[in-house]
């Protein structure tokens, strides 16, 4: 069974067609890069997969079920959509404990997740004083609380400095090494190129290409393949 199945997915906001008849699958145990220019509909698609936005048409399922119907969603899927989605007055530890409680997870997972992203030393500091990189790590820790086999990450490297990017790349490699399924959207093609097995490229809400990295790049770079595809789409 596929980890994620997106079938003829569409979403319209007023007159704007954000996602248009989009279909692709994410295979289990692989890292899939979800690429597209700004405004391509990546975030909207991820939010529809996670049941946060209602599709205008089509469907998105995780292991054959809509997210809303998952019995234990935090154990099935870990997601990071906004790196700064924290109450600034709450400590990292309290944020994780509250998320554990809401998801019916044991409180000890908060400590373990803090350790996994190297935030134990600042666990009791208010998130308002965190750097962007620390917030990204905390967001990842939140996604890892339920030890999910599937991770959905929206621009996890956004705004990170070189140290942060290095840490993120290592982190994604570790996840891939553990055999987890990862769907990661990103603008940083060189980073995706180093960790992704499969790639899905979208523009203007439509699918441009999907396949293994080797198939799409055909010996060239992912960046060149991406630019060729998106420019051709814009020209049409």
């Amino acid at each position: 069974m596929t980890a994620i199945t997106v079938s003829h997915l569409g979403k319209t906001f007023g007159r704007v067609r954000a996602v248009d008849d989009l279909s692709f699958t994410v295979q289990p145990g692989a890292v899939t890069g979800f690429l597209g220019p700004n405004g391509a509909g990546k975030t909207t698609t991820l939010r529809m997969i996670l049941g946060l936005v209602r599709p205008t048409s089509g469907s998105a399922t995780i292991a054959g079920r809509p997210y809303r119907d998952l019995k234990d969603p935090l154990r099935a899927v870990g997601a990071v959509l906004e790196a700064s989605a924290f109450h600034p007055g709450r400590s990292a530890r309290t944020h994780l404990l509250a998320h554990c409680a809401a998801g019916g997870l044991p409180a000890k997972r908060a400590e373990e997740a803090l350790a996994e992203v190297d935030l134990t030393s600042v666990a009791d500091r208010r998130v308002g004083g965190f750097s962007l990189g620390m917030r990204q790590r905390l967001a990842l820790a939140t996604a890892l609380l339920g030890r999910p086999d599937l991770l959905i990450l929206d621009e996890p490297g956004n705004g990170l400095d070189p140290d942060g990017m290095h840490w993120m790349r290592s982190f994604l490699r570790d996840l891939a090494g553990q055999g987890r399924t990862v769907l990661v959207s990103s603008h940083v093609l060189t980073e995706v190129e180093q960790v992704a097995d499969h790639v899905v490229i979208v523009a203007a809400g439509r699918l441009l290409a999907t396949g293994t990295l080797a198939e799409l790049t055909a010996g060239g770079s992912l960046e060149q393949a991406f630019l060729d595809l998106t420019r051709a789409a814009v020209a049409r």
Partner: peptide, 18 residues
């Protein structure tokens, strides 16, 4: 309003999609 202002409502709806 705090949930929407700080976008923490997203975490809440991910933990409990209903």
């Amino acid at each position: 309003t705090g949930e929407y202002r700080h976008q923490t409502v997203t975490w809440a709806f991910l933990a409990s999609p209903v």
